[in-house]
Design a protein around this nucleic acid. Sequence first.
RNA 1: GCGCCUGUAGCUCAGUUGGAUAGAGCAUCUGCCUUCUAAGCAGGUUGUCGGGAGUUCGAAUCUCUCCAGGCGCGCCA
Length: 564
Amino acid sequence: MSIYEQLKQRITANLITAAGSARQAGELSFSELPNVVLEAPREKAHGDLAANLAMLLARQAKMPPRLVAEKLVGKFETEGTWVKEIEIAGPGFINFRLDPAWLAQVVPEALEQGALYGSSASGRGQKVQVEFVSANPTGLLHMGNARGAALGDSLASLLAFAGYEVSREFYINDAGNQIENFAKSLEARYLQQLGFDVPFPEEGYHGLDLVETVKKLVGQVGDKYVNIAPELRRELLVKYALQEKLSDIRQGLQDFGVEYDVWFSEQTLHDDGSIQQVLQELKDKGYIYEKEGALWLRSTDFGDEKDEVVVRSNGVPTYFAADIAYHKNKFQRGFDKVINIWGADHHGHVARMKGAMKALGYDPDNLQILLMQLVRLIQQGEIVRMSKRSGQYITLKELIDEVGKDAARFFFVLRDPDSTVEFDLDLAKSESAENPVYYVQYAHARLCSILRKADEAGDADACSKLRRSSDYSLLLNSPSERELLHKLGEFPSEVETAAQLLEPHRIARFALDLASLFHTFYNDQRVLADDLALRAARLDLIEATKITLGNILAILGVSAPERM
RNA sequence: GCGCCUGUAGCUCAGUUGGAUAGAGCAUCUGCCUUCUAAGCAGGUUGUCGGGAGUUCGAAUCUCUCCAGGCGCGCCA
C-alpha cells in the first residue's frame, strides 16, 4: 500500500475509533456508522484532507453537524497520522492539515518501485478477460473501432497494473449471415472485375476495399472462379478475403499499439458443436420454447424486454446463440471476470446476454459490458455518417497516418466512454501540434533532458554520490515542489480508483495534471541548483516524476519520448 | 410509442461515486527565453451546469416532468 493510502486509512480508522469512543462516553448517539469518506478538498484553504462524517451523523445523533464534529475531534487521536492541525469548518467539515514531512517519503517510494510504482496487488491475480474491437472482418477498421481499441487496450493495461491477470481477446465474426452477405458482395466484385455486368447486392458491403481485395485475387487466379459452381466460388472468395481482411485488421491494430492474446473464431463454435450443446443445456433447463418454427430463449425471465430467437425456422442458429456459446466458453476457461466493450448501438443485447449467463448458472455480475457512445466524425463542418455497408468512413490507417498513433489514442482515452465524441478530422490534423498528448510527452522529454544534463556532468559532480539517499526534506520548501510531490503520492490511489471503476480516462486526466504541476515546478525552481544536496534531492524528484509519467504513458499505450 | 446514453465557458471536454466560491485545454488579451527543451510558465476575460419541480444541512451529481440530440426496439450482426 502506498504512503498516501496508508495515511488516509489511518486517519479514517482513527475517525471511526473517535466516533466509537464518543458514543461510549455518551456524547454521541448513533446506531450505524455511515461510510467514512476522506477526500482532498478542492480549495487548498480547506486543508489537505476533509471528512464529512459529522454531517452524515447529524441526523442520527440529533445534533447540529458542527457539534458532532466537535465531539469527534475531541476524541480523535492524532498520534502516528501526520495530522498537524484539525479544524471544523463550513457546515460541519472536519479539515485535516498534514505535516508536509510525509511528502518526503514519496520520492524514495517511487524510485524504489520504478516501473511498478503505482501498481498494486488489489486484483489478487484474478483472471480477467477484456474483449474489444471484435470488428467484422468484412471491411476495414474505422474510427469507432479506434475508440474501442484505445479504450480496451488501456483498460486491460490498467487492470494488469492493478494486479489482475489480464487477457486481451478479439472475437472474429467469421460465420453467419454477414458472411453470406460478404460472399455475395465479393462474388459481384469478382465478376465485375472480369468484365461481367452483374448487379451489386443492395445489402452488400459497398466499401471500395473489397474491390482492391478482389483485384489482388484476380491477379492470382484470374478467371478460374468464373465457370465453377457458385457455392464453391463464394466459398473460395470468402476464404481468401477473410484471411486478407483479418491480417489487415491485425496489422492495423498492431500499428495502433494493440496486441491480442487470443483471436477467437466464431466458426469454431459452430464446428465443434458448442452452440448445439449450449442450446441443449438451455432446453434441458426449460428456458427454450418453439414458436412459428423457430426456437426462442425466454430471456424475459431474466429482465429482458422480449424473448429472443436462438434458432431460426430454417434451422440456422442466430448470432445470439453463438454469442451465448462464446460467453459460456469464456467462463469455462476460468475467467473470474469477463469484460466486453461494445458500441452503444449494441446496448439492447446487454440484458439478454446477462440473462443468458444467468440461465446457464453464471453470476451475471461477472460479465461486465462497457458501452461506448459512437464517434461522430466531422469533416468540412459536416457530420459524416459512417457505415461499413455504405463504405463511408475514415479508416484506422488514415487516422494513424494523418493524426498519429499517440495523439489519436490519447484523444480517445481522455474521454469518458459515455460521451459522444465529435472528431473533427481537419481540426485534429491542423492542430496536431497542440494536441494535449504533446503536453504530456513534452514533460517527459523535458524530464529526460534534465537527467541527461546531470549525467553529462559526470562523476566530477559530487552530487551524483548523494543521489537516491538524498535529504528529501529539502524539497518541502516551495509550494510547486510540494504540490508535485503530493500528486506523485496520489498516483497509486488513482490507479486503484480507475481500475475499480473501469475508467482509464482518469489516468489520462491524471497525466495532464501531473505534467502541468511538473511544468510549473520547472519554471519555478531550478533542478540543477548550485547547492549539491538540493540538486541531488531535486534530481531524484525528477526521476520519480519521470518514472510516474512513464508508467502512465505505458498504461495509455502512448510512447514516452526522451527528446522532442 | 418504449428503453439506454448525452446536454456544463465561444469550441472540445473534466467534475473525486451528494460536499465548501463549478474546473482544464483550445480561442482571445498581457507579460516571461544571456541559466536545466518557450510543444513551456505566470496573469486577465469567459457560466440561467438544457428548463421546471422535488428529496436535505447541502444538488452539475439523486427522483419526477418537459425540451433537444444520439442509439436501440429483426427468424441482421
